[in-house]
Amino acid sequence: MIDIEEISKILPHRYPILLVDRITSLELNKSVEGYKNITINEQIFLGHFPTKPIYPGVMIIEGMAQTGGILAYKSSFGEDATNMDNKLVYFMSIDKAKFRSMVKPGDKLVYKLEVLKHKGKVWVLQGKSFVDDKLVAEAELKAMLGD
């Protein structure tokens, strides 16, 4: 398990764009699972939408990407956090994105990603997001670990 304190050491993101609360499972170079608890206190709900709060699909994709970034970092550097200084995961592409159900305040949004391909600094991941074991979104994400 990786808690929010360690996540904050790995990812450069901070409020309001840090979109993963905990990593519950990680198998280096293979897969990762994490989650974000969605609350009505999310800043995004001020505008999306004030009378019917729906968590935006783009935020779900970003949360999957951040979770995948943790997998890439941990797989590349293990526990040696000193080598991670000045490293970032850059998005290269988002393909085959589908949104299947709304995510609302009170939901626990679970991110599950599997490595489809990893060559050098480039990672291709299949991401899926769930609420109560129901698939709510999926996408194929390509990213590069760089300076």
Rank of each mutant, 00 (worst) to 15 (best):
P16R: 09
P16C: 13
I17D: 09
L18A: 04
L18F: 04
L18K: 10
L19T: 08
L19W: 04
D21S: 13
D21K: 12
R22C: 11
T24A: 09
T24P: 10
S25N: 14
S25V: 10
S25D: 15
L26K: 11
E27R: 15
E27Q: 15
L28A: 15
L28D: 12
N29R: 02
N29G: 01
V32K: 02
Y35L: 10
K36E: 05
K36F: 07
N37C: 13
N37V: 14
I38Y: 00
E42W: 12
E42D: 15
I44V: 15
F45W: 08
F45V: 05
F45A: 06
G47F: 02
G47N: 11
H48C: 05
H48V: 13
H48N: 07
P50H: 03
T51Q: 14
K52Y: 14
P53L: 02
I54T: 03
I54A: 09
Y55H: 10
G57C: 03
G57L: 09
V58Y: 10
V58Q: 03
V58L: 11
V58P: 06
M59L: 15
M59V: 01
M59N: 11
I61F: 06
I61S: 05
G63H: 03
G63I: 13
M64K: 08
A65E: 00
A65T: 00
A65F: 08
A65H: 00
Q66N: 03
Q66I: 03
T67P: 03
G68C: 07
G69Q: 04
I70C: 01
L71G: 10
L71M: 09
L71C: 09
A72P: 01
Y73T: 00
S76M: 12
F77M: 04
G78R: 06
G78E: 07
E79P: 00
D80S: 05
D80Y: 05
A81Q: 08
A81M: 14
A81N: 09
T82M: 05
T82V: 08
N83V: 06
M84S: 08
D85T: 12
N86Q: 12
N86F: 10
N86M: 07
N86A: 10
K87T: 08
Y90W: 10
Y90E: 12
F91D: 00
F91Q: 02
F91I: 11
M92E: 08
M92S: 13
M92V: 15
M92K: 14
S93E: 11
S93L: 09
I94K: 01
D95A: 13
D95V: 05
D95F: 01
A97Y: 07
K98Y: 02
F99V: 13
R100K: 15
R100Q: 09
S101G: 02
M102F: 14
V103M: 09
V103T: 12
K104P: 01
K104D: 01
P105A: 02
G106R: 03
G106Y: 06
K108A: 03
L109P: 04
L109A: 04
L109G: 01
L109T: 02
L109M: 07
Y111E: 06
K112S: 07
E114C: 07
V115C: 10
V115L: 03
L116E: 14
L116F: 04
K117T: 08
H118F: 01
H118S: 13
K119P: 00
K119S: 13
G120M: 08
G120A: 08
K121V: 01
K121L: 11
K121M: 04
K121Y: 07
V122R: 00
W123V: 04
V124G: 02
L125V: 08
L125S: 05
Q126Y: 11
Q126F: 13
G127Q: 02
